[in-house]
Every structure is written in structure tokens, then in C-alpha cells.
Write a protein that binds this DNA or RNA. Structure first.
Lengths: 192, 192
DNA sequence: TATTACTGAATGAACGTTCATTCTGATAGG
DNA sequence: CCTATCAGAATGAACGTTCATTCAGTAATA
């Protein structure tokens, strides 16, 4: 009987604590406590802390991927598709601050670099594929600036992540209008 | 008796190790080893690890500030001033990868959030002041988009930091042309 | 009862920090 | 010129703490 009950509790507790305090501020004992299980129980579900961390990351990435697909259609015009992905991504971060904070912790750690390498250079089945597809189409169709994909990514993800962070930290209150303007500004940055 | 001999060695070692391995991957014993001093010697110059870390941060910030001032003149037209600051900042990061990596470590840590709060909300004498001044001027003169300062910052710093990171990690090779195009694209994002 | 799931005290490694000791080189007395 | 004295710089082994992980024992389930 594979009870995901406890596994889910462990993952939830890990997300909360790591998002709030970072990897080193979230000891296994604390995660176990928050999850309402014994410290040893975690090791029945995850080989070690690294595995817990990376599996949680994959869960999150899958969720984001699914959220972005909603209402996305290759039929729509290019610009509309871009605006959709941008606003959806920003929405998702704003409505899931724990997820966002976790991703930040993850990306700024030894774990993160290897994953980013895959995402930018490789052909991993990651959240970026839908973006990669769109951006490469945009450059070949001369809709976007003639810049390396990595630069275009930076011009888009850079502001989106910054803005999401500022919102979550309370430096700015993003509403629908502001979100829209931000993504439009990103568009101005990448469009030819 | 230049008292700063050992202090400088300690700071240099801390910069190298923390930039490369993060705060938790750079134990005091390792910093001492790299600096060629005893472990206890560090505590003659710095009260504890936190003080070492934040003093190193202030040193770095001061250097960047100075680098940005070079060739900067409030006489020049707005756009030119922006392009100057942008390219100089990017140059500085690219030519000082250890500094950049250290800043990333710092900003993504408990230390960083408080500092960012100051930088964005407060009136600290930090690297951002020259940017804040310029951007506020740009909005009042209706040169830049009518967006909160924080958003404009995100539209500029977001891409610059992303691109610098990608260059340093080897995901893209930035040359003069590419740097210029990147900063121009940022300009497109923020200009009205 | 047999098997599996769970627990949390025990373990050992790693860390920041301390402090008794050693080193260094300047000064003073002879 | 030599040697004794000394202040403070430097050292690194030792300490106490924290953490991930283990495992012997307990509870639940079949």
C-alpha cells in the first residue's frame, strides 16, 4: 500500500521550509516535524535530502508546464502567444509564492547550474521547451531581434523573475494592469 | 608594518571561495587555508563570518560604484547616459566574474534581502542611486514608460544580470557588439 | 503471527568559534 | 653589540553545536 499521504506531507513541508529559509535553514528534522512524521520516515520515501530536493523541483516544473499550456494555442498569432505565456508565468509565480521562492533557492545553488545548462543548451523536456520553440520561431520569422536565444531568454525571463520577486517581497503590488504592462515592455525588448 | 597584508589575503580568499562554492561551501578553515593564515587569524580582522561577508560586499559595491562613474556625465543626453551605465555595468561583471558570482550569492541569501529593501525603497548610498536618479528623471521627463521605478529596474537589471550570468557560466560569449545590442534591447523595453 | 511502516534517540561528520600557546620583532639594559 | 624582556600578532587543536543519516525498537496491518 503506497500511501502518498505522508510523502505529500513531507514534500509540502519541504517546500514551505526551504522556500522560507533556504536549503540550509531547513534541516531534515524540521521538515519531519512540520510534516508530522518521524525524522527517519523521510528516508523511506527519499534516498536522501538531495533526492528530496530535486524531486520536489521536478514536481514544481511539471505543474508550471501544465499551467502554461492552459489556453495556449499555436493557432493564435505570435505576439498573442508570447503575451499569454508571459502573463500566465507571472500569474503563476504571484499566486504560488512558495513555489517561486523555492525555484529561486534551487536555481541559486549547485543543483541549479546543471539544470540550467540542460535548459538552455540541451533538449530537456523542461518548462523552457515551449518558450524555446516560440522564440526560435520568432527569430526565423524575423519577428524577434536577431540575437542568440540565450539573450532573448534573458530579456524575457530576467524582468519576469525580477518583477515576481519584487512583488513577493512586497516591493511592489502587481495587479492585472501592471502585469500586462510589464509583459508588453518585455515584448518591446525582444521584438524587432 | 602594513597591517592590511593579511586582511587583504583573507578577503581575496573569501571572495574566491564564496564566489565559487557559496557561503556554505566556504568554511572558515578553507578560507584561512587559501589565504595562507591560521584559522584563528581571521578573527583578528573580522568579528565573525557574517562581518567578513558583509564587509566584502561593501568593498565590492564601492568598486562598482567607482567603475560606473568613469566617463559618466550628466551633461550627455539621457539615452547616452543610460547606454553608458548599462554597458559599463555589464563590462564590469564580465571582467570580474568572481565579483559577479559573489554578488549573486549575497543577494540570494538572508543578507541580501535586507540590502535590497534598502536599495529599492530606502535612500542608501548604494550602487543603485545613480540608476535611481537617472530613472526617476526619465519618468518625469516622459522619456521612459510610466511604470513604477521597481518595474523599470527589473526591466533593466533583470536582463543585464541574466546575460552576465550566462556569459560567466559559458552559455554565451558576449563581445562588444552583443553587449551593445543587449543594452539597446533593454532600452527598447523601458523607453516610452 | 509475520510483515511492513514508522519512530526518534544515537551517531559521526562538519562547522564556526575560542583560547592557551608560539612566534616575531621592537625596545631596553648592560 | 648582545641579550633579556615584552606586547601583540598569529596559530591550530579543541570545543560545543548542528546536521544528515542510521538503526534498534515499536506500532500497525495483513
Amino acid at each position: 500500500m503506497v500511501k502518498n499521504d505522508k510523502r505529500d506531507e513531507i514534500v509540502r513541508a519541504a517546500l514551505e521550509l526551504i522556500a522560507e529559509h533556504g536549503f540550509h535553514g531547513a534541516p531534515m528534522a524540521m521538515i519531519a516535524g512540520r510534516a508530522g512524521v518521524g525524522a527517519g520516515t523521510i528516508y523511506r520515501y527519499f534516498e536522501n535530502k538531495d533526492v528530496l530536493i530535486t524531486e520536489l523541483y521536478r514536481d514544481i516544473e511539471k505543474n508550471i508546464m501544465e499551467a502554461l499550456q492552459q489556453g495556449y494555442s499555436v493557432e493564435k498569432p505570435f505576439r498573442e502567444r508570447f503575451l499569454h505565456l508571459g502573463t500566465e508565468l507571472l500569474h503563476h509565480f504571484i499566486h504560488n509564492p512558495l513555489v517561486f521562492r523555492y525555484l529561486e533557492q534551487f536555481h541559486n545553488s549547485p543543483y541549479g547550474v546543471a539544470f540550467r545548462r540542460d535548459k538552455i543548451l540541451g533538449t530537456s523536456t523542461s518548462e523552457c521547451n515551449v518558450f524555446r520553440e516560440l522564440f526560435e520561431l520568432g527569430t526565423t520569422q524575423q519577428i524577434l531581434k536577431d540575437l542568440p536565444l540565450v539573450i532573448l531568454f534573458a530579456l524575457f525571463f530576467g524582468p519576469v523573475l525580477s518583477v515576481a520577486r519584487d512583488h513577493i517581497l512586497g516591493f511592489v503590488e502587481l495587479d492585472e494592469v501592471l502585469i500586462h504592462h510589464t509583459i508588453e515592455a518585455c515584448w518591446d525588448g525582444i521584438k524587432r
